[in-house]
Write a protein that binds this DNA or RNA. Structure first.
Lengths: 207, 207
DNA sequence: TGCCATCGGAACGCCACGTGCTCTAGCCTG
DNA sequence: CAGGCTAGAGCACGTGGCGTTCCGATGGCA
């Protein structure tokens, strides 16, 4: 870079950078979030640089740091504002299908463009307790609650033993999925989900 | 720093740095590993700097980089050369006790000085596939095999249903423990281990 | 229309990284 | 035992990203 001559060059037209229309408020937020996810899928979390995000969004680093104090918080926000949230608990009338459906919902998220974001976020989470709290509240707890609800309905139908209605047991599915996701870079296959459900969760919860 | 006068100071004795006795081979390795673990417990993985390790070991950065190409590899080696390995599978005659014993072994390691190392290593693992392979081979697989062995003996005694002798099921314990360890910065309590065993693993494997 | 919060852009100081160089300690060979 | 050669210590350097600060411009709002 900087290859340009260094003498009286600026003759090079008054490109006069400050030009394009300037965004504020929501428009700017949206542009930054989009740029963050684009950059994330392009180079991954580990290689994501604040400056590149700013450039891609045609924003300034100052605008980024005014809103987020770190890369992790930016990415957490970007992901959170982009993903739909884990949605409602499936209710097919069969616990097995509901659990599988719930896991598939997570897996789809992880296999999608936000997957790389989540991966990096988890790495960051390990180092940053505050961020861990944010991630737990935003991503982990809703998942556990979803499975608890599924189990509860299964118990009502007599498919699930009542003593299985615990946070610990409801966490098993998400935790195994998360662990698999962290340990393998490839997309989570449906095969794996089925294995988790049929080999672990179902034997664990049924009457 | 650098508070010393800046003029003709060097009168300050010919400290003549290249002096002390110099170590090579195993002695040097040992000093570096020790310094790495000390530094790890002192400031944690995220804040561990190669230069500080070098200083603490009274070694040079060059000596470090000549042996390890990154912080992650250094730490992985340091931990691996320090921990005893996960040891033999317990054999008390009771699956529950054996499983609990196995988990306690891991938990002790994680609660000890290497815990912080493992934590940081796992974070790094997420970004570095090669390192992930190393960690899997050195730390994860031996654990799974240990539990498989425990289950196998339990099956022989009729305590464990034979269909539970799978890698997937043997992995559940270590994976839940790992997940808990990553999600909480506090030491893993025995209470948690008991909960995992009694609420998840035992209902899952018994006849 | 005029004001002012905020934007984009660029430069800056900082710090850790990883490398290269010099000088020297300690082993190994003859 | 002497000489040489490998490898270690210490230091300085270039590099790159971070996070901050300043400036000029801009657009919403009164």
């Amino acid at each position: 870079m900087s290859s340009v001559g260094e003498s009286c060059e600026s003759a090079s037209v008054a490109i006069d950078h400050r030009k394009g229309p300037r965004r504020r408020g929501d428009a700017l937020y949206a542009a930054i979030f989009e740029a963050t996810l684009d950059e994330l899928t392009a180079v991954g979390y580990a290689e994501l640089k604040m400056e590149h995000v700013a450039n891609r969004a045609r924003a300034s680093k100052g605008s980024l740091y005014r809103r987020w104090s770190s890369r992790a918080e930016l990415v957490a926000d970007a992901v959170h504002h982009t993903v739909p949230g884990c949605g409602e608990a499936p209710d097919t009338g069969s616990v097995r299908e509901d659990i599988l459906g719930g896991l598939r919902g997570f897996a789809n998220l992880l296999n999608g463009p936000s997957g790389e974001a989540v991966r990096g976020l988890m790495a960051e989470t390990i180092r940053n307790p505050d961020l861990m709290e944010v991630v737990r509240t935003r991503f982990v707890e809703p998942g556990v609650n979803l499975f608890l609800e599924v189990l509860r309905r299964g118990a009502v139908r007599g498919e699930v033993r009542p003593s299985a209605l615990t946070t610990r047991i409801a966490s098993v599915g998400p935790e195994l999925l998360r662990q698999h996701f962290l340990a393998h870079r490839s997309p989570v296959s449906d095969q794996v989900l089925i294995e988790i459900v049929d080999e672990v969760i179902m034997p664990l919860v049924r009457m």
